[in-house]
């Protein structure tokens, strides 16, 4: 059932290019998941319902989302290709340029996305979830991978 509803909403996903990696939950969304947070729903809504970093403007513009990830040491870059020593985040926007989704790159080079209230998935390429729901990829950001502290 889960796979069927996912593939109905994202027709470019098929059995051989993605996998479900978590149960469905409303506790966090894709923006939080890309930021490494599984406890909050991030969104700059005008009613101040959800979490948004105080250093970023509370508007649903691409610049605001870039600023939000910059607070986590990400910086805009120009390549989706996996680079050893870095982790990357992609921001998707709709036809009007408003952010819709974010995905985070894994060390395998694949991407991980939380689909709204649904599950987390791992997908081979960013373009497998472009379309009417999430629009297209607008920006890539990267930051150095945190090295495990030595004890």
């Amino acid at each position: 059932m889960s796979k069927q509803r996912i593939e109905n909403s994202f027709p470019d996903l098929s059995a051989n290019n993605y996998s479900i990696t978590s149960p469905a939950t409303t506790e966090y969304n894709c923006i939080a998941w890309a930021a490494g947070d599984t406890e909050k729903w991030w969104w700059p809504d005008p009613l101040y319902v959800d979490y948004w970093p105080s250093e970023a403007p509370r508007t649903d513009s691409l610049q605001s989302f870039i600023k939000a990830y910059e607070t986590l040491d990400y910086a805009v870059c120009d390549s989706v290709v996996y680079e050893d020593g870095f982790e990357k985040v992609a921001i998707y926007v709709d036809y009007a340029g408003k952010p819709t989704h974010a995905a985070r790159q894994l060390s395998s080079g694949y991407w991980t996305s939380k689909l709204g209230d649904w599950e987390d998935i791992e997908h081979n390429v960013l373009n497998s979830i472009i379309g009417s729901q999430y629009g297209s990829v607008a920006t890539i950001l990267k930051r150095p991978t945190k090295k495990p502290s030595s004890s």
Binding site: D45, L47, D60, T100, A102, G116
Partner: peptide, 12 residues
């Protein structure tokens, strides 16, 4: 129609 969305604004 909104369960796959993250935008609180779009959802609401």
């Amino acid at each position: 129609e909104t369960a796959m969305l993250s935008s609180t604004t779009a959802i609401s």
